[in-house]
């Protein structure tokens, strides 16, 4: 198992992470090592085993369709790095 630089580049792009060349090499080596070790789980037989997500039996519940707002619009935008009125401002998308 080898995570090559092309894969690192692809993963970094998917994850939207700018990774410098030096770190990319390091990540490549480390992820190769980690995943090689972790691959030991592939030896286990899991035929017909349903994947487990929530580890405890918890009763499913849904909420009633009621409106409740505890914050003002201003509070929702108070942390925005940049805004225009009550809208969030980002680079041109198209």
């Amino acid at each position: 198992m080898i995570i090559d630089q092309k894969t690192i580049e692809h993963i970094a792009k998917l994850a939207r992470l700018k990774v410098n060349a030096e770190d990319a090499v390091e990540y490549g080596e480390q992820l190769t090592k980690v995943l090689t070790h972790f691959q030991q789980i592939s030896a286990l037989d899991t035929t017909n085993i349903e994947p487990l997500v929530t580890p405890v039996d918890i009763e499913f519940f849904a909420r009633e369709d009621n409106v409740k707002q505890e914050n003002t619009t201003e509070e929702m935008l108070q942390n925005a790095p940049e805004k225009a009125g009550n809208l969030f401002k980002v680079p041109p998308v198209v």
Binding site: R63, D65, N66, V67, K68, Q69, N71, T73, M76
Partner: peptide, 23 residues
């Protein structure tokens, strides 16, 4: 529905900018 699928903010159409929001 009156409120959103996973949160309690309203769904009304003619709301002001970001008025129908919760954390």
């Amino acid at each position: 529905t009156k409120s959103k699928i996973f949160s309690t903010d309203p769904t009304k159409f003619d709301a002001a900018d970001n008025e129908n929001t919760t954390p």
